[in-house]
Simulated assay, not measured.
Amino acid sequence: MELISSSKAFGGSQRVYRHDSAVCACPMTFAIFLPQQIEDGPVPVLWYLSGLTCSHQNVMDKGEYRAAAAANGVAIICPDTSPRGEGIPDEPDNWQFGSGAGFYLDATQEPYAKNYRMESYIRDELPALVSQHFPLDMGRQGIFGHSMGGHGAITLALKNPMRYTSVSAFAPITQPSTAGWSRPAFETYLGPDETTWRAYDSTALIADGHRLKDLLVDQGTADGFLQEGLRPWLLELACVQAEIPLELTMREGYDHSYNFVSTFMAQHIGWHARRLLPG
């Protein structure tokens, strides 16, 4: 791994690394915050998945997570949202697809299948890499995210309940297979057979029998994407029917920005910490 940057924060260390990814067949970048508690032994891991058009940098600059992570003794890892770089297929004029819009799935359609394998990268390759280099307790992992990243966090947790002890989301895309801003990406990455899309749709996964111990979701009522793209009531209905405990809070007046995410970031980290830490 190549260390890109490192700085001290709240007694811990905020770092950014680049490495060659075999899964995505290109260099990938991620950020990691290591709390001071690593001096006493391995700490739990909380994965944060960012949304459309973002990279690891957005939450680093705007997410305000380090104080809560340091207070709770939790490492936070922020992967990128897609493969990037020369030779990587992209549609630069379409913010809902390509670079910055990997949707945390493994593409099956050419020319995207070679590089756009974000599910395997987040689930398998990056955890294996960080476990070799940092004092992390990989038996205690949680996952959360924003928008497209909230979608990714919930679907990964549903499919890997033994991996992720806790899961939460800010304004997640709850049913991407039917949302106008995600259907085109699903068809391009996964092909026209919509039955294959179910593996990356939270409501479909729940309908197909996947379960979570519990789930925390915050959503702003002034979010411009609420009605057409996010639709938390679809996730709420799926959880009610499956008897999954869902704590869904509609935050009056909040929009889709990191002003919303940062406001409730500490609450989410505390929620995860109570599930990841003993006692």
Rank of each mutant, 00 (worst) to 15 (best):
E86Y: 15
K62C: 13
D106S: 12
D90N: 14
Y112N: 02
R117K: 12
S99M: 15
G41R: 09
M28G: 04
Q141W: 01
I122M: 11
E119C: 09
N72M: 10
P27E: 02
W95F: 15
G98M: 06
M60R: 14
S131E: 11
A67V: 03
A107C: 08
I122N: 10
Y116W: 04
A71G: 11
T108Q: 12
N115V: 06
F144W: 12
Y104Q: 07
D137Q: 03
E39A: 14
E110W: 05
P135A: 09
A75S: 11
P92E: 05
Q57L: 13
Q57V: 13
S99Y: 10
I77W: 02
V130R: 00
M28Q: 10
A107W: 01
A67Y: 12
G98R: 04
N94R: 08
I88G: 03
P83K: 09
Y65M: 09
A101T: 01
I32P: 04
R66M: 10
C78D: 06
E91N: 13
G63W: 06
A113S: 14
V130M: 02
L49D: 06
D137T: 11
A113L: 10
D93Q: 14
I38H: 08
A68V: 08
E39Y: 10
I77S: 05
A67F: 10
Q132G: 07
Y116K: 07
E91D: 14
A71M: 08
